[in-house]
Amino acid sequence: MLPAVDKYICSFQRWLPGPLAYIAGPEHLKTIKLFATWHARPRLRERADRRHITPSIRRFAAEQIKYATTFLRWLSARHATLSSCGQLDIDAWFAENAEHVRTCLRALLNWARRSRRCRRSLSVPTMKIFKRPALSEGERLAALGRLLSGTDTPTGSSLHPTVKIKGAAGGDRLEQGLEPGGRVLVGPGPPPAVQGGGRGKPGADCA
């Protein structure tokens, strides 16, 4: 019985000849073929052995091939090759491109260093991880106001113009309303009135 093959690995293998056909230089084509054979496909197989490959993993493998090809063309425009590029080339590429593009290219550079296809002394900048600070109380209220006013709400949804929300401390409540101009007001509000004055038999107000 033949071993099972992940559908996303098959998808990647069917996709690969397409971009390879558009690589003009023979050296570039050779490099990308080797990179796909000895890095991209083995990584997909390793992932498939550990857990299922997701569409995003398959897409990321394709983007590694795409930006590796773009990088080789970029080097050619600078009269350089993968084997001759220096630290100034690497730094210039990373300075010109967004973090996602940098992340996609790191695989090629690390593979090239290990396989001695570029200078092993090259330093590949590490990925930057950005942590957003926690929202302040004012920012939370502003975001809540945008949501309740419909600014951040999908088209077709509707919200009542006045909404009362339980506060975080002391049982206080926040009252949100809309001014005639559409501006959102969020602030302290009175506690909700109890129908029937709180007296009477349970369920009397529901009759």
Rank of each mutant, 00 (worst) to 15 (best):
R58C: 12
P192R: 11
I165C: 04
D172K: 13
L159S: 11
H28V: 00
T81V: 08
H52F: 04
R117Q: 14
T31G: 00
P161I: 05
P154I: 07
V101I: 15
F12M: 10
A207V: 11
V186D: 04
G171Q: 08
C206W: 08
P192K: 09
H52G: 11
S157V: 09
G197Q: 12
L122D: 01
C10W: 05
A142P: 03
R113W: 03
A68K: 03
V5W: 01
G86C: 10
P180F: 13
D152T: 15
R132T: 02
L29Y: 10
L29K: 09
I65V: 14
G25V: 06
R50P: 00
G200C: 00
A143D: 10
R43T: 09
E99V: 12
A77L: 14
G138C: 04
S158E: 13
D91H: 06
C104M: 12
I53Q: 07
I53L: 15
G182S: 13
R140K: 11
P180W: 14
R119W: 00
N97V: 14
L75W: 09
L147R: 13
Q195N: 05
L34K: 05
H28K: 01
H160T: 06
G198L: 04
V5A: 05
A4L: 13
G181N: 15
A142Y: 06
L20P: 07
G182P: 13
H160E: 12
R73P: 00
G198E: 07
E46L: 08
K66V: 08
F94H: 11
A40G: 01
S115L: 09
P42Y: 13
